Computed example of a mutant assay.
Amino acid sequence: MPTVLYLRGWRFHFYSNEGNEPIHIHAQKGDSECKYWLDVESYDIREAYAYRLSRRDTREVRKIILQHFDEIVDAWNTHFGSQS
């Protein structure tokens, strides 16, 4: 389970068996968890699911993903091979 970054108590990661899916990132903090799809062409993210996240948590996670978008994509491509 490669971890891309830890920030503000959030752990951003993906699972090693997910290489057949489009680029995405999981975020986990305590009992809160979410997953976002990353669209490399439009530089956009789309929520796949979110469990036990407040609106504030959702905004924070989205902001972190957007601020580290390229780093996340690079980590995905390094682990699974380029898909972008």
Score class of each variant (00 low, 15 high):
1 M>E: 13
1 M>C: 10
2 P>W: 09
3 T>F: 05
3 T>W: 04
3 T>V: 15
3 T>L: 10
4 V>N: 06
4 V>T: 03
4 V>P: 06
4 V>M: 03
6 Y>N: 14
6 Y>C: 07
6 Y>D: 07
7 L>Y: 14
7 L>R: 15
8 R>D: 14
9 G>N: 14
9 G>D: 13
10 W>H: 12
11 R>T: 15
11 R>Q: 13
11 R>H: 08
11 R>E: 11
11 R>F: 08
12 F>N: 08
12 F>L: 14
12 F>E: 04
14 F>L: 08
15 Y>A: 06
15 Y>V: 11
16 S>K: 10
16 S>Q: 05
17 N>Y: 14
17 N>W: 10
17 N>D: 08
18 E>Y: 14
19 G>Q: 05
19 G>L: 04
19 G>E: 02
20 N>F: 05
23 I>A: 06
23 I>E: 04
23 I>T: 09
23 I>S: 05
24 H>W: 14
24 H>T: 04
25 I>G: 12
26 H>C: 07
26 H>N: 08
27 A>N: 10
27 A>Y: 01
27 A>G: 15
29 K>A: 03
29 K>F: 01
30 G>P: 08
31 D>Y: 08
31 D>N: 13
31 D>K: 14
32 S>K: 15
32 S>I: 04
35 K>L: 07
35 K>V: 04
35 K>T: 07
36 Y>A: 00
36 Y>H: 10
36 Y>S: 04
36 Y>W: 14
38 L>C: 12
39 D>A: 12
40 V>R: 12
40 V>D: 07
40 V>Y: 11
41 E>W: 05
41 E>N: 13
41 E>H: 10
41 E>Y: 00
41 E>M: 07
42 S>A: 13
43 Y>L: 13
45 I>W: 00
45 I>Q: 04
45 I>K: 02
45 I>H: 03
47 E>H: 03
47 E>M: 08
48 A>D: 13
49 Y>K: 10
49 Y>P: 02
49 Y>W: 12
49 Y>H: 14
50 A>Y: 01
50 A>I: 02
50 A>S: 13
50 A>T: 02
52 R>V: 00
54 S>D: 05
55 R>N: 04
55 R>W: 03
56 R>N: 03
56 R>P: 01
57 D>Q: 09
57 D>V: 11
58 T>A: 06
59 R>F: 00
59 R>D: 01
60 E>D: 01
60 E>S: 02
61 V>F: 02
62 R>E: 02
63 K>Y: 01
63 K>P: 01
65 I>P: 03
65 I>S: 09
67 Q>H: 13
67 Q>C: 08
68 H>I: 04
68 H>A: 02
68 H>S: 07
69 F>M: 05
69 F>G: 07
69 F>D: 14
70 D>I: 07
70 D>E: 09
71 E>M: 09
71 E>V: 10
72 I>P: 12
73 V>D: 01
73 V>S: 03
73 V>N: 04
74 D>T: 11
75 A>V: 04
75 A>D: 12
75 A>P: 02
75 A>S: 08
77 N>A: 02
78 T>L: 09
78 T>Y: 13
78 T>I: 10
79 H>S: 06
79 H>K: 01
80 F>H: 09
82 S>G: 06
82 S>W: 11
82 S>N: 13
83 Q>V: 00
83 Q>S: 06
83 Q>L: 03
83 Q>P: 03
84 S>W: 10
84 S>L: 08
